[in-house]
């Protein structure tokens, strides 16, 4: 029979992600999809829309907003949510600071990246969410490579990597006790290249900062950080204008850009394939603090 279309790697990854999304929606009472306006969460939200079309999403989106995001990303976020016509909850780190739940860091190294954990866990508790979809991938980082699709978090939001639930075949144990929740990672087996290839195939739009543009930057720890009121500079840190793009989009204070002239998905793909630096190495200052920085943050309830 020739009616069958050939099934490629992206088709398999897409089918797997949709299977996980549908399982979670069916088994959990109150899921939420964590949406940052970054490329991985855009792919995730796109897959969720496809999983339930033509009906709407059976869960809302939620953005944990550090208040230090790139304006282009916030604009994109709002347009995206309007286009798919779904509900967006914004959990604000600034609110957590105002309520005295967390304390803002100060100085040139100040970042709200770590503070997000409290805001996220508070929002999960407030809305009684029992599952939060995230766009994390196993290729991002060593401790991520150990993640399950349904990653169990106790009532304190903690991850216990030594005692994870087995996931043989594609059968997921979705049982929870009161106060516990899951982090669900449908994109676990995708790589950075897969994400870009899929964005190209599906014709998805992205925030403009993912493509080459002129920006005033300064160099710190080998990374090009954006010049912005939210980031205090040391006196020796000179600013200059450079043609750059961002490989990841996170809190401005810890997300670096790279020199690039890539203005299309195809050019970004070619550049990414040829790059000798990993995604996190290129753009995340938060993982450079220690070998187990990500594992430690995840244990405490980080994304």
């Amino acid at each position: 029979m020739t009616l069958l279309t050939e099934v490629g790697t992206l088709d398999v990854l897409e089918a797997e992600a949709v299977h996980v999304i549908r399982e979670c929606a069916a088994e959990c009472e109150r899921p939420v999809l964590l949406f940052s306006g970054g490329k991985d969460s855009i792919v995730l939200a796109h897959l969720a829309v496809k999983a339930f079309a033509p009906a709407g999403l059976p869960f809302p989106l939620m953005h944990v907003d550090t208040g230090h995001n790139f304006q282009e990303v916030i604009d994109y976020r709002d347009q995206f949510v309007a286009r798919i016509d779904e509900r967006l909850i914004v959990a604000s780190v600034q609110d957590s600071i105002d309520q005295g739940r967390v304390q803002d860091e100060t100085g040139p190294r100040a970042s709200r990246n770590r503070l997000q954990t409290t805001t996220l866990l508070d929002a999960i508790a407030e809305h009684r969410f029992d599952a939060a979809f995230g766009g994390a991938r196993r290729d991002e980082e060593r401790s991520r490579a150990k993640e399950r699709f349904f990653s169990h978090r106790d009532a304190f939001g903690q991850w216990d990597p030594r005692n994870q639930r087995p996931e043989p075949w594609t059968i997921y144990n979705t049982k929870l006790k009161a106060g516990e929740h899951f982090r669900v990672f449908p994109l676990s087996n995708w790589t950075e290249i897969d994400i870009w290839a899929y964005i190209g195939r599906e014709g998805l739009s992205l925030p403009s900062i993912y493509f080459a543009h002129q920006r005033e930057v300064f160099e710190r720890d080998g990374m090009l950080l954006a010049v912005d009121d939210h980031i205090e500079r040391y006196s020796h840190e000179q600013t200059f204008t450079e043609t750059v793009r961002f490989r990841t989009v996170g809190d401005m204070t810890c997300t670096g850009s790279i020199r690039s002239t890539a203005t299309t998905v195809a050019e970004v793909l070619a550049e990414t394939r040829a790059s000798d630096v990993s995604e996190r190495g290129a753009s995340r200052a938060d993982d450079k603090t220690s070998e187990a920085a990500m594992e430690d943050r995840k244990r405490n309830g980080y994304f």
């Binding site: 060593r142 490579a145 070998e291 187990a292 430690d296």
Partner: peptide, 10 residues
């Protein structure tokens, strides 16, 4: 050390 990603493993 590349795939032994957990602190306890390393």
């Amino acid at each position: 050390l590349l795939t032994d990603g957990l602190r306890a493993e390393r």
